[in-house]
Amino acid sequence: MSREIIAILRGVKPDEVVAICETILEAGIDRIEVPLNSPQPFDSIGLIAEAFGDRALIGAGTVLTPEDAQRVKEVGGALVVSPDTNPAVIKKTKELGMQSFPGVMTPTDCFAALRAGADGLKFFPGNLVGPAGLKAMRAVIPAEVPAYAVGGAGPDNFAEWAAAGATGFGIGSAIYKAGCSVAEVRAKADAIVASYDKALA
């Protein structure tokens, strides 16, 4: 079962990223992003793309420029996630054959992203949009467009978000915080998966 969850490993370091990624994959989450404001992010992305790229969607978050998207591709990444809607980043990402999930918060953002070629939408910050906001926007966003809630979405409200039209979630600190051990990450990932499966069954 492929779960629509992106694990966000903000703050992860290259010397720990492979073990952490491996335990997340074992828990049943196969989409992983390393935000570019992490230590040596391209090194981390390259390591996990090499190790797991054949069975996971690996890429970068907090991608702000086309040049950053190019570097993600060069190290083996296949996913570009941004906090904003930048048509230049989206277009470059698609030119390079990667998946694009830009950050949106308004209908204007949503349609600008889709016109630029985005594969899906990252509703961020989710706690500001809220399930009610997403539900209202879902009335006009094409049904086939993936909608990920990021920031403010978690095990306690997966079902509410899903009922509002969310098809997936980006999960950061609820899975990984800088300094977490592999065992801690596995326990958190198992809990996220169990909650997701229950809410979206």
Rank of each mutant, 00 (worst) to 15 (best):
A7T: 05
E184D: 14
V140I: 15
R55G: 06
I29P: 02
K188D: 02
A187F: 01
G76V: 04
A116I: 08
G120F: 09
P66I: 07
G168I: 02
I29Y: 09
G168S: 06
M98S: 05
I175P: 01
E74L: 07
L114S: 06
G130K: 12
A153H: 05
M105D: 00
T167M: 04
A162H: 14
F101Q: 08
E22W: 08
E22D: 14
R138M: 04
V81D: 09
A191F: 00
I8G: 03
F158Q: 02
A118M: 02
K92L: 10
K73S: 13
A69F: 06
S181P: 07
F52P: 03
V17S: 03
E74A: 14
G126A: 10
G103W: 11
M1F: 08
K13R: 14
I29R: 04
G117T: 14
A164V: 12
F158W: 12
E16G: 01
V72L: 08
A56H: 11
D119P: 03
S181L: 03
Q70L: 14
I32Q: 00
I192R: 05
G61I: 09
F123I: 11
S82R: 11
V150M: 07
F124I: 14
A189Y: 08
D15M: 04
E33G: 06
A113S: 11
V12K: 00
G11E: 00
A112H: 03
A201I: 02
Q40A: 13
G103S: 04
G168P: 09
D156N: 13
R186Y: 07
R71K: 15
G76A: 11
G53K: 11
A19F: 09
E67C: 02
G151R: 11
L134N: 07
V75Q: 10
K92E: 13
K177W: 00
A136C: 02
A159D: 06
G117C: 09
C110Y: 03
A118S: 15
D15V: 08
R71S: 04
S181F: 03
N86A: 04
S173P: 01
G151T: 11
A7F: 09
Y176F: 07
T167A: 00
Y196H: 13
F169Y: 15
T85A: 05
A187M: 03
P41I: 13
G46F: 13
V34Q: 06
N127T: 03
D15C: 04
P41E: 12
I6N: 00
A174I: 02
P102A: 04
A7C: 07
G168T: 02
E184K: 08
A163Y: 04
V18N: 02
S181K: 00
A116H: 07
T65Y: 09
A201T: 13
Q70A: 12
T167D: 02
G28A: 08
Y196R: 12
A166W: 03
